[in-house]
Amino acid sequence: MWGWLALAIGAEVTATMSLKASQGFSRLLPSLLTVAGYGLAFWSLAQALTRGMALGMAYGVWAAAGVAIVAVLGVLFLGESLTWVQVGGIVLIIGGVLALELGGSVAHA
């Protein structure tokens, strides 16, 4: 399950970075990578769900990891800025996903 989710995250991040490079779908290779990446991301996410991963957990991890990774890659490779307020927002997103996971694993007596 987790391998499929990791593939979904990697494909989504690749597609998102390619979307920026496609310049509004005016460049062929980045445009094709965008479409293929998003297709692979959703297919891989569906595979994780089919194999028993809870929807809320899968989507939460997928979205949070995607946001965090794309933000960092934007800073490293695209010259984008990342303020402490934005870092705090990313931390809150990740904390929210952890709360979903930890709250769901509590045994009810």
Rank of each mutant, 00 (worst) to 15 (best):
86 Q>K: 15
90 I>A: 06
85 V>I: 14
105 S>Q: 14
103 G>M: 09
77 F>R: 11
85 V>E: 13
99 A>Y: 14
95 G>Y: 01
103 G>C: 06
73 L>K: 01
80 E>D: 12
76 L>T: 03
87 V>T: 10
101 E>T: 00
82 L>H: 02
104 G>K: 04
104 G>C: 02
77 F>T: 10
97 V>Q: 06
94 I>M: 10
78 L>N: 11
99 A>P: 10
72 V>P: 00
105 S>M: 13
97 V>P: 06
107 A>Q: 14
92 L>I: 15
85 V>F: 11
103 G>T: 06
84 W>L: 12
90 I>F: 07
86 Q>W: 05
93 I>P: 12
89 G>V: 13
95 G>F: 04
85 V>M: 13
93 I>D: 11
98 L>T: 13
79 G>F: 01
73 L>R: 03
98 L>V: 15
87 V>N: 03
89 G>L: 13
87 V>R: 14
79 G>I: 01
91 V>T: 08
95 G>E: 08
83 T>P: 02
98 L>D: 03
85 V>L: 15
77 F>N: 04
82 L>C: 05
106 V>P: 02
102 L>P: 05
92 L>E: 07
88 G>W: 08
78 L>S: 07
74 G>H: 00
104 G>Y: 04
92 L>H: 09
106 V>Q: 12
76 L>C: 01
75 V>N: 00
93 I>Q: 12
107 A>W: 05
87 V>G: 05
78 L>C: 04
82 L>W: 05
93 I>R: 10
103 G>P: 10
100 L>F: 03
104 G>W: 01
75 V>A: 06
100 L>W: 02
76 L>Q: 01
104 G>T: 07
96 G>W: 01
106 V>Y: 10
107 A>S: 15
75 V>K: 08
93 I>K: 09
95 G>I: 06
75 V>S: 02
85 V>C: 04
103 G>I: 08
105 S>L: 12
77 F>I: 05
100 L>G: 00
105 S>H: 12
89 G>F: 08
94 I>V: 15
104 G>P: 04
84 W>V: 13
72 V>N: 00
74 G>N: 03
103 G>A: 09
80 E>Y: 00
88 G>A: 14
77 F>G: 07
88 G>V: 11
80 E>K: 05
95 G>R: 02
84 W>D: 06
78 L>Q: 07
95 G>A: 15
82 L>M: 13
85 V>R: 15
107 A>V: 14
96 G>N: 04
90 I>K: 08
94 I>S: 02
78 L>D: 09
83 T>C: 03
106 V>A: 12
93 I>E: 10
87 V>D: 01
